[in-house]
Amino acid sequence: MSPSMIPPVRALAMRELVRFFRQPHRVVGSFAQPLLFWIFLGSGFSPAFRMAGAGMERVSYLEYFYPGILLMTMLFAGIFSTITIIEDRNAGLLQEVLVSPASRLSVVLGKTLGAMAIALLQSLVLLAAAPFIGLTPGPGSLLMILGGFVLASLGFTALGFLIAWPMESTAGFHAVMSVFLMPLWMLSGALFPLEGAPGWLWGLMTVNPVSHALQLIRLPFYHSPAELLTHSGYLTGLAVSTAWAVGCLALALWRVGQVERGADPASAVGTP
């Protein structure tokens, strides 16, 4: 990353933030929706929920679901930021960005860092609810939770970027969101634990990178930083989430660099 990239990255990231705060319904929705999900689903399922596993017996569903809701915030912030790519392409700022001398990397970073900033703001507000369900992570653990937020948010935004880039309508993006992005979250252990799931579901959940990102957010609530650094589940989560985020970013960068090319002149022989 060269110094000349800073102004374009900053400008594009700031644009995401400004747009976010300019749309009051979006601000309200993005804070209220996870909160309502959490309170309604969490309270409703609590009586029926009994967590298996040593030391987790007394975890209520409200508490179990909490890290999952934080993860959902990352997912939605990523989706809302990348969906503008589609709207922007034919009549909007994206045309301007693409003809400018700004590097392709700054285009990808501007978008993902802007979305990450929004996701972090939302999650920090939600984090204030942690003490009410008895979760009081120390400063070290909090930092690790934030690290989990950063990786999950980069992963989701870069993935959304990849999906949105070639799309021509936002309707198509909504379809992908409901059959692909939401299931990624549902099968991450956000709603129910891996343990005890049917074999095929367990398999899906284990290969789902989002499950591993969730571990980065869930485990620091229950373990000290020192414990985490020797915790195999946490370290696996860290490795998978990093690979996911970096892989998606690299693919997004490659995608942005792709320019529509003319076909071989010989192929048009005989057409007017």
Binding site: P7, R15, V18, R19, G92, E96
Partner: peptide
């Protein structure tokens, strides 16, 4: 462009500033 390459949610000046940053 034929269709405006502007962010309609941003002010005139904000659009100018983004352009200035993109072009260094």
């Amino acid at each position: 462009f034929q269709k405006p390459a502007l962010d309609v949610h941003l002010s005139v000046e904000e659009n100018f500033k983004i352009h200035a940053d993109l072009y260094g």
